[in-house]
Design a protein around this nucleic acid. Structure first.
Length: 622
DNA sequence: TCACAGTCAATAGA
DNA sequence: TCTATTGACTGTGA
């Protein structure tokens, strides 16, 4: 019956004038949408509809089927198909643009008084949403869009409303209730790290986070809910602070216009570093050989589990940790989840995948261990048999671990030691967060009492390809130190020394080693770092970051970041290097401006304020 | 009580 | 002033 009716309609249409037929078709579709929406509203629950007429809303269902179509009652005869949401969204956007209709207006007058923000969200979400993925409630806004697009009459009404509603122009906050707070950068970092580990943290975990971050449990819970629902948008914080090109590319694809911010950021920071390195190259005497430093690299613990060496001429390398045990990607167990949680390449902060896997296993062992409530310092290898492989690994690498302290027991007698463990790890971790500049870090010397290596090496390698280093800005005090005359007086190899080791192809200054003293941490640690810079002959170079990194927090977060905070806070102008640095360099004035790294961090004053508060938060953790 | 889908609306950036 | 982001909220079902 249904088929013959359709045939008749088609025959009638074929006899009509094309424009009339088109209008009629549009009217029919509009009527169908109106009818459908009206019926949906009459339902006591939108969810009921899926059982009756709309097909199911099971996201696991990957396509619209004939069954779904057959289930649609005759009253929906005008419905030729489900709404093609991406196409509808595209058309709707184009229509708004061509008609000069703002999202705000459209939200109010077309979308049945929804909010502008929601419309924006719907338009973005709709780009990749299939009809079958949405509940009936979720379909409504797209039906409205489709209905409006199919209805010239509705469009005319809208345009007349647009011309009449001048007063609609006035904007402004509605009630100024100020209900929303804002997470600090540090809070976000911690939350992100936890999210990486567990997208559904237990109540204990959330309580601990709330306690440690001085945030209500509700806010923590909601944050995790939002991240789960939105595909971990906060990963931006991670990606923006990494220097992984692949992440940068994915950022570009994923965040659209935001990529421009990132590009600007990259450009500014690259210029800054280029200028700084050129400046260094021009003021320091050449010296020794490349081999000596390379041997440091090859023997480096932090180059990973293998004995691979890192040639300064090698191009940048990144580790794909996305499939590593414990990575977020690996958590996507079902098609449903993999659809909702976009793949996220963890910044290569853990060295290679083996190392990451080992570390994750180690974490899990700690978490699931039933042995008492004592939470062990992750920096210290325990006598537990389950950690034997880790011990062996560290032993093979000549890792000389000093005894560490146990983390405090959880006062509530929680059975889940993981939260405290992770918090401590986060704080101690030398992750991308704690790195104020791009580098390739590896350990030199022993691990100090508080888990901080006495020395660490950092390399920057040149590459023929221009790579995108997305990284935090260069550390101000670092730049001061490297250009300071007094540093040159210090014997090579000692803290504070600068030495150049050239090679034949790239010239005498193509490799530079700077041994730097770490600032005093809150726990009284004094360490040093060695920075090896393969100074490029041209402006085009990249940062090979990081082949290896600190296994589980061997560099004190506070000892690095806090210093940077103070540098920033002490600056007379926000986001600028100190005057003395400007004077010395002359030509790099302004080059060290901290470029915007994320929307919430673009404001210099806000950033400084954020960093200052972060210092306090970090202090509290230690 | 919790998680989730959807939404509101404050806010930041262009 | 626009849109995009995101903290917070509502309604719902298990």
């Amino acid at each position: 019956m249904r088929g013959s009716k359709r045939e008749a309609v088609e025959i009638l249409r074929s006899l009509m004038d094309p424009s009339v037929a088109e209008s009629l078709q549009a009217l029919e579709r509009t009527a169908a949408w109106v009818n459908q929406v009206a019926q949906m509203r009459q339902m006591s629950s939108f969810q009921d509809i899926k059982e009756d007429s709309m097909g199911d809303s099971n996201p696991d269902r990957d396509a619209y089927s004939d069954k779904d179509f057959d289930d649609i009652p005759d009253s929906y005869e005008g419905l030729q198909d489900f709404v093609d949401i991406p196409a509808t969204v595209q058309e709707f956007k184009a229509a708004l643009e061509s008609s000069g209709i703002s999202q705000r207006f459209a939200a109010k007058f077309i979308m049945d008084s929804t909010s502008q923000g929601n419309l924006s969200f719907l338009l973005e979400k709709g780009k990749s949403k299939h009809w079958s993925e949405l509940s009936c409630r979720g379909r409504l806004p797209y039906i409205r869009m489709r209905r409006w697009l199919d209805s010239p009459e509705e469009q005319r009404i809208t345009l007349s409303q647009l011309s009449m509603t001048k007063e609609f122009k006035k904007t402004g906050p509605k009630d100024g209730s100020g209900r929303r707070g804002k997470f600090t950068l540090f809070q976000l970092m911690v939350l992100c790290r936890f999210f990486e580990e567990d997208q559904n943290p237990s109540l204990n975990t959330r309580m601990l986070l709330a306690e440690k971050l001085l945030v209500s449990l509700e806010r923590i819970t909601i944050w995790f809910q939002n991240q789960r629902a939105r595909g971990f948008p906060a990963k931006r914080v991670l990606c923006l602070m990494s220097v992984d090109r692949q992440n940068a590319e994915s950022e570009k694809a994923e965040f659209g216009r935001k990529y421009k911010n990132i590009q600007d950021d990259i450009q500014k920071r690259t210029q800054a570093l280029t200028g700084a390195l050129q400046n260094m190259a021009g003021t320091t005497a050449p010296s020794p050989t490349l081999n000596g430093t390379e041997s440091n690299l090859s023997s480096s613990y932090f180059n990973g589990l293998s004995t691979e060496t890192q040639s300064p001429s090698a191009g940048p390398r990144t580790m794909d940790l996305s499939s590593a045990p414990g990575s977020v990607r690996s958590l996507s167990a079902s098609p449903h989840l993999s659809q909702r949680y976009k793949p996220y390449d963890i910044p290569p902060v853990w060295g290679n995948s083996d190392r990451y896997g080992n570390f994750t296993n180690y974490l899990l062992q700690q978490t699931t261990s039933s042995a008492g409530n004592s939470i062990q310092n992750p920096n210290v290898i325990q006598s537990d048999e389950s950690n034997a492989s880790m011990k062996k690994e560290l032993g093979d690498l000549g890792m000389n671990l000093t005894p560490g302290r146990n983390l405090p027991e959880k006062s509530s007698g929680s059975t889940d030691p993981r939260p405290a463990f992770l918090v401590q790890n986060m704080v101690n971790s030398s992750s991308v967060f704690s790195r104020p500049y791009p580098h390739n870090a590896y350990q030199l010397g022993n691990i100090g009492q508080n888990g901080v290596p006495e020395k660490e090496g950092i390399t920057m390698t040149k590459s023929s390809d221009f790579q995108i280093p997305i990284s935090p800005a260069p550390k101000m005090s670092e730049m001061e130190m490297t250009s300071s005359k007094k540093q040159e007086k210090i014997t090579n190899g000692n803290v504070g020394s600068i030495s150049d080791h050239g090679d034949e192809s790239n010239g005498p200054q193509s490799l530079r080693t700077i041994v730097k003293e770490e600032p005093k941490g809150d726990q009284g640690h004094i360490g040093s770092s060695v920075y090896n810079n393969h100074s490029p002959p041209t402006n085009n170079f990249s940062y090979d970051y990081p082949m290896g990194n600190h296994l589980n927090g061997h560099v004190n977060f506070a000892s690095i970041k806090v210093e940077n905070v103070e540098d920033d806070v002490n600056m007379s102008k926000p986001d600028r290097i100190t005057a003395s640095q400007s004077e010395r360099s002359g030509k790099i004035n302004g080059a060290y401006e901290r470029a915007p790294s994320s929307p919430s961090l673009t404001n210099g004053r806000a950033l400084n304020s954020e960093l200052a508060s972060m210092k306090k938060e970090v202090d509290r953790f230690n």
